[in-house]
Design a protein around this nucleic acid. Sequence first.
DNA 1: TTATATTAGTTGCATAACTAACTATATGTC
DNA 2: GACATATAGTTAGTTATGCAACTAATATAA
Lengths: 151, 151
Amino acid sequence: MSNNQFKRGELYSVINGMATTAVARRLQKNFRNAGLEITIEQWSVLYHLWKEDGLSQLELGNRTFRDKASTTRLIDNLEKQELVTRVASKDDRRINLVYLTDTAKPLQQITYELANKTMNEALQNISKDEIEVVKNVLQRVYDNLTNKDLV
Amino acid sequence: MSNNQFKRGELYSVINGMATTAVARRLQKNFRNAGLEITIEQWSVLYHLWKEDGLSQLELGNRTFRDKASTTRLIDNLEKQELVTRVASKDDRRINLVYLTDTAKPLQQITYELANKTMNEALQNISKDEIEVVKNVLQRVYDNLTNKDLV
DNA sequence: TTATATTAGTTGCATAACTAACTATATGTC
DNA sequence: GACATATAGTTAGTTATGCAACTAATATAA
């Protein structure tokens, strides 16, 4: 019997990601309570642009784990809210580089604070060691399912 | 400084749930490759009905971590595919009890097997102890954010 | 240099999520 | 019994997801 055999009844709770969902919902709520009109999905894109502005849509999709269709529409919505602009690359005109606008810049500080607050709420009474194990395991799960595409 | 302070750059990967997403996508793919036409969201509802048939929509929503509007539409779609039927409760006619049809019953075995297969793919080289820590931490994260609704 | 293949992004279609407002049934209080 | 309140479920509106088919631009190969 494999080392990783689950009792069937336990499977769903592992797959379900209820904790992830709960964190996302709480962060969204904290955004809303602070009067921020952005979704956490939009924020996930802004987050990567604050780290490195002017990424291509494809690269943004990779970093936020989305396919290109989802990325297209997320950026459509961000553009509608005037938080980013698309600029065709001069080297390769197939590529759209995505840049933050001045409207987006002041959101960085407040959303970082709200994300920190949310994580503190989520991680009450959970030790640093436990968090490290979780991060490590989830990374390995991700790698198990994506590095080799054997299906 | 709090015990749970994160370096900012690490925040997103924790919130994002990329591992959860990857597992869900792989399970969906495994369903599709086996010729099953159901979504994992639909499967999550069937999963609970196989454990206990005839639950109310609200109870199904609780067990699958959905609000009632989402539950309504999920069951609409399951009904369209003739996998479940709604039966008004005789005791309280506001309540819809949801029952599996004969069409749904043969799906149980094959989807359990595919879920097991998916979890084995996901959890390669991850020890039982690590899995226990992850499950325990995620449960506590969930509890931290839901037991007391202090926002 | 022309034909073919690849790549980045968009669009159509279907499912699903959440909020808020709504309907219908039950319950509680006077 | 009548009126207010609570509860279960539905509907409308918006955003997001994924797949597949498409366009436009670039790269490769003959």
